[in-house]
Simulated assay, not measured.
Amino acid sequence: MRSTLIKLHFAVFLWGFTGVLGRLITLNAPLLVWYRIFITVITLFVMLWYTGKLEKLPARKIWQLFGAGAIVALHWVFFYGSIKFANVSIALVCLSSAGLFTAVIEPLLTKKKFNIREFLLGFVGIAGIYLIFHFDPHYKLGIIIGILATIFSVVFSIVNKKVVATIAPKTMMLYELSGGFLAITVLLPFYLKALPTNHLTPSLSDWFWLVLMSWFCTLWAMDLSLQALQKVSAFTQNLTLNLEPVYGIILAFAVYHENKELGTGFYWGFALIILSVVLQMMRVLRYRKV
């Protein structure tokens, strides 16, 4: 179980870089996600085809995975939208609401019994967001978009938990991200019509950061997380995701000096997020049941 938790935490560490990379890339949120998924899908297809591990799945399973991919693609669009409307730190800290939303949504989508302890642990994270919003109200829109991103992330993890045990992780990623690519491709013209942009193609530096994001923060990180999800609950995975703000915010402070933009409320809220993660990890290691 310890090795599983290590894989999960390392995946979260890699995801912590996506906020910093997202701010470096000059494309708007949907275009950024479109190119990110495009590079990842092409890479995955070539890898699986070259190694002879390209699997065909039943049509019903393919549509399930396409649906899950559309959800994670929307999560990414809202996440990077939150960065654009607020900053990296705010977008990342909104993910701390994952524990609360998982505790509420998972029993509704599965047969799992409602767990009051999980709800209370998740509520600690949402209390941290409230403190940030209370002291820094000018981040209102970015926080709302960030919370919507978190809800999509939670639903994605719960849906994945249902099928992850029966499909190889890389095969699962290929079909899911292909579905996400199709979903963003369909929605992109409507977004660009509502919010036009002249910057449709990545610059040379954008391509570099997109490849880095796709290979390390998407392909490798998702593979590790799917391996971990075979043995841990969706709640443990989503609450562990609360560490993504820890890693990402440290990087944002170092690269963009965002600590100069944030007030006292942010740090009090951030402390509550760390507390919720520590309490859950102590609970997991004590009962050896995740």
Score class of each variant (00 low, 15 high):
S3F: 15
T4C: 13
T4K: 09
K7A: 14
L8W: 02
T18N: 08
G22C: 09
R23D: 00
R23Y: 05
A29Q: 02
L32Q: 06
Y35Q: 01
Y35P: 01
R36A: 10
R36D: 04
I37D: 03
T40L: 13
T43L: 11
F45C: 07
W49A: 13
L54K: 02
E55L: 11
H75W: 02
H75P: 03
W76V: 11
F79M: 11
Y80M: 15
S82G: 06
A86H: 00
V93N: 03
V93L: 15
S96F: 04
K111C: 11
K111G: 14
K113Q: 08
I116S: 15
R117K: 09
L121C: 04
Y130R: 04
L131T: 08
F133Q: 13
H138Y: 10
K140F: 11
I143T: 00
I147C: 07
L148Q: 06
T150I: 13
T150E: 01
F152L: 10
V154N: 04
N160S: 08
K162Y: 03
P169Y: 08
L174M: 10
Y175L: 06
Y175W: 05
G179I: 13
F181I: 15
L182G: 10
A183W: 03
T185F: 12
L192P: 07
L195C: 15
H199P: 05
L200R: 07
S205P: 05
D206S: 08
W215E: 12
F216T: 09
C217W: 02
W220E: 07
A221H: 00
L224K: 03
L224G: 01
L226A: 11
A228V: 09
K231Y: 12
A234S: 11
A234T: 03
Q237K: 15
T240P: 07
V246S: 09
I249A: 03
I250T: 14
A254N: 08
E258P: 05
N259E: 14
F266W: 02
F266T: 01
W268M: 14
G269S: 04
G269K: 01
V277K: 02
L279I: 10
Q280C: 13
M282G: 11
Y287L: 15
R288C: 13
